[in-house]
């Protein structure tokens, strides 16, 4: 139950990271065609990092859970 809550937090963080990457263009503080302002650069770096990290954590979590499942299946066969 607690781990599921943590996984839900990771999913929310991934979505938040995606929002941070899109925010400068959606909110409109980054003019189209102009050089990136400081806020845009900050949001892109932080948002991209959060999204990548949380996605990698979700993949690791899923892979480890699958490995445990397959191990249980092997034990059940023998």
């Amino acid at each position: 139950m607690k781990a599921k809550l943590g996984v839900s937090a990771l999913v929310l963080l991934f979505l938040g990271g995606l929002w941070l990457v899109a925010a400068p263009f959606v909110v409109g503080y980054q003019p189209r065609g102009a050089a990136y302002v400081d806020a845009t650069v900050n949001d892109l770096w932080i948002g991209g990092s959060i999204a990548m990290l949380s996605f990698a954590s979700l993949v690791i979590y899923a892979a480890d859970a699958l490995r445990e499942l397959s191990r249980r299946g092997k034990h059940a066969d023998t």
């Binding site: 781990a3 943590g6 996984v7 937090a9 990771l10 963080l13 990290l53 949380s54 990698a56 954590s57 690791i60 979590y61 892979a63 480890d64 859970a65």
Partner: peptide, 9 residues
């Protein structure tokens, strides 16, 4: 996997 999740969070 839980440890990785805790560090990421």
């Amino acid at each position: 996997r839980k440890f990785v999740g805790a560090v990421t969070a």
